[in-house]
Simulated scan of single mutants.
Amino acid sequence: MHSLNRRERPFLIDEVLDDFARFDFPLKDIWLSAARFHYHNLAPEISALPSGARALEIGCGAGILLTLLGQQSPNIYMEGIEPFAEGFETMEGVLQHAQGLGARIHRSAYEDYDPSKAYDLVYLVNVLEHLPDWRHFLDTLPRFLTPQGRCLVLCPNYGFPYEPHFNIPVVGSKATTGRMFRRRIDWVENTYEVHGLWNSLNFVQLSQIKRHLAGSQLKLRVRHEITDRMIDRFNTDPVFQKHIGVFNKVGRAAKALGLTQVFRLGPCENLQPYMFLEFSRVSE
């Protein structure tokens, strides 16, 4: 196994990502770009856990982010689950490489996964918006968590009228948007070999999550800092800047004018483009 965890953190990130970049797989630049960004969002959360704590990534894909975080915090027991649906064959080499670097990855959907012990931290990155039933996931989430455990979710918020996978505006419902932008949707799925991506999206909204949690076993904290972090990413991540296109100018202008602070105010937080959510158990 590589001794990457003994290096300084910036070199660890670069070395691991360069290692994965040797493989050829669809949307490689976007996957690696996202792994780098979300490493910086999650590394402080992982490193703050006590030694010996347990963490789980739900929907870990081929394990790129899981490998980064595991190398950064070798004192934390980390594992991931991923159902590896049809079409994942192009990622097998990446998966095997991640496992060779020590990533513990189970081939399972969350519905079928029975952990041997509960986790101190569970996290999902760009996964919640693809779940067939996100409400069911939230209802069953407590079984994964220790009494003081937390779950961190990062994903788009469809309360903001923009679909980031296809880089299109949302016009009313998903059905209406799909009809209006069918050519764009088909082009993206065919060009990047991501067939079925549009159908997998559930268009989850923050306001819906809040309503669903009323009277549940979970409480929610909205981490507003993610909006400015996403906009700052335009300045440091050319892959992200190219993917988002014109929206990077809109985002920069909004931050410069202080408009992103509006997303911290009452009902306006339901309109933030991207969500960083922290779930924990309601105290008994």
Rank of each mutant, 00 (worst) to 15 (best):
G70L: 12
R22M: 15
V262R: 03
R233W: 13
Q72C: 13
A35K: 10
L32N: 00
P83H: 11
S33G: 05
R143L: 14
C60L: 05
P26G: 09
P142G: 06
G266C: 10
H165G: 05
E92G: 03
P74F: 09
T191Q: 10
H97G: 04
G52H: 03
I226E: 00
L121H: 01
L271M: 12
L12V: 14
H97F: 08
M91S: 07
A55H: 05
P50S: 14
E82F: 11
N167P: 08
V239P: 00
E269W: 04
A98V: 03
Q208G: 15
C60A: 10
A55D: 03
V94W: 02
E92Q: 15
L12Q: 11
E79V: 06
Y39D: 01
D139R: 12
G61C: 02
G149F: 05
T191L: 11
T177G: 01
N199T: 08
S280K: 09
D24I: 12
V239S: 02
N248F: 03
L213D: 04
I30G: 10
D29R: 13
R6T: 15
R36E: 10
R183V: 12
E225A: 15
Q96I: 12
Y274S: 08
L56G: 00
G245K: 03
T227H: 02
N190R: 09
S51Y: 07
G87V: 09
L213A: 08
V127N: 01
Q72R: 14
M78H: 06
A62G: 14
V125R: 00
N75T: 11
E189N: 03
M275H: 07
V16H: 01
D14Y: 07
N75Q: 12
R150F: 07
Y158S: 04
Q148L: 07
G245L: 13
G159T: 02
E163F: 06
F37M: 04
L152N: 01
K117W: 07
L206W: 05
V222T: 06
N75L: 11
H2I: 09
M91Y: 13
A34N: 04
L12H: 09
K242Q: 13
M91N: 03
R9F: 10
Y39L: 03
H106A: 05
R6Q: 14
P267N: 12
A118D: 11
I13S: 11
N157G: 08
M91C: 09
T67V: 09
P161K: 07
F84R: 11
T191A: 13
Q261D: 14
L95T: 03
E225H: 15
A48C: 12
E269G: 06
L138G: 08
L259F: 08
M230C: 11
V94H: 00
V194E: 04
E45R: 13
H165P: 00
K255P: 08
H40P: 01
A256M: 04
T140F: 08
N270T: 09
E8R: 08
G251R: 00
E89T: 04
A62T: 07
D232R: 15
A35D: 12
G63M: 02
Y162W: 15
L32P: 05
N5T: 11
R9S: 04
V127H: 08
I185Y: 01
V204E: 05
P273A: 03
S3I: 14
